[in-house]
């Protein structure tokens, strides 16, 4: 699980152009949207594409997405639960 979390951080930093951030700058439980990392709605769409492209996982329900994309921990838990 820890390896998956580190991989996710690298993917998110690259995908969302979080310039000058490193995986060490993102805590596993840090809130990704709003006041935490400050991601926005377009970033959320990119994360949906990321899960589909790299992990073959689809998120159909927006309410489900809110919970999944809360933090690195919750994304990793979602991926693990589907594999």
């Amino acid at each position: 699980m820890e390896n998956l979390k580190e991989k996710l951080k690298v993917e998110i930093i690259e995908l969302l152009n979080l310039e000058e951030m490193t995986p060490a700058d993102i805590a596993n439980d840090e809130i990704l949207f709003g006041e935490g990392l400050g991601l926005d709605s377009i970033d959320a769409l990119e994360l949906i594409v990321l899960l589909e492209k790299n992990y073959k996982l689809k998120i159909e329900n927006p309410e489900e997405g809110k919970k999944i994309f809360r933090s690195i921990n919750t994304i990793a838990e979602f991926i693990e639960s589907k594999q």
Binding site: L16, N17, I42, D43, V49
Partner: peptide, 9 residues
């Protein structure tokens, strides 16, 4: 087929 929302905008 993975259009990027961030590019699309």
């Amino acid at each position: 087929y993975f259009p990027s929302p961030a590019i699309f905008v």
